[in-house]
């Protein structure tokens, strides 16, 4: 694994310049549904290993899956990395715990309350109150557990009266 970067184990082994270059390109690929975040921020990229990029879908039926793969292909090709292969894996299943700390900050700044950490242990830990991404109040309430995309729930803030999205704990 000396030439790999993994985003799931928290391990950052020695990186070759080639792998670093692939990682740099991937960090420029936005998520189509939340363009403020890159696919690396979201934890969709699992690993870069030699000339293989391994990705995983967030949800089984995520309609953006194909689009994301095409975006990665395009970005790699544009960077002269047409030889790099993209592989998809389902296991282990994606969890919102893989969203990076940087990604969580970007979500908040974008107006989406980030998910609480620890989802991997309890997939339905949505009972903790979300913090309003606009005014910071914890006086909030869930409107619907299903929102405009599979990964978001609808909430409202009782303090500033604004509705907001919360990234689902998953």
């Amino acid at each position: 694994m000396s030439t790999a970067i993994s985003w799931t184990t928290g391990v950052s082994p020695a990186r070759t310049p080639a792998v670093q270059e692939i990682a740099r390109v991937l960090s420029q690929v936005p998520d189509p549904e939340i363009p403020a975040l890159s696919i690396i921020d979201l934890g969709i990229v699992r690993e870069v290993h030699g000339d293989r990029v391994i990705i995983t879908p967030t949800y089984s039926g995520c309609p953006a899956t194909l689009y994301i793969e095409q975006s990665i292909r395009g970005a790699l090709n544009d960077a002269g990395l047409a030889h790099v292969r993209i592989e998809t894996t389902l296991s282990p299943p994606w969890t919102s715990d893989w969203i990076s700390d940087e990604g969580r900050e970007k979500l908040r700044a974008y107006g989406i309350a980030p998910p609480p950490k620890g989802a991997a242990n309890a997939s339905l830990r949505n009972d903790t109150h979300a913090q309003c991404p606009r005014c910071g109040s914890m006086n909030t309430a869930e409107i619907s557990r299903f929102g405009s995309t599979p990964c978001k729930a609808l909430w409202r803030c009782n303090a500033c009266a604004e509705p907001f999205d919360r990234f689902k704990c998953h």
């Binding site: 299903f146 929102g147 599979p150």
Partner: peptide, 20 residues
């Protein structure tokens, strides 16, 4: 509208699972 979104999300999950 909330229920509409919920049911569409359920359908999407299930069709994704079916694809797999």
């Amino acid at each position: 509208i909330e229920v509409d979104l919920s049911l569409a999300n359920l359908a999407l999950d299930l069709i994704g699972q079916a694809t797999h």
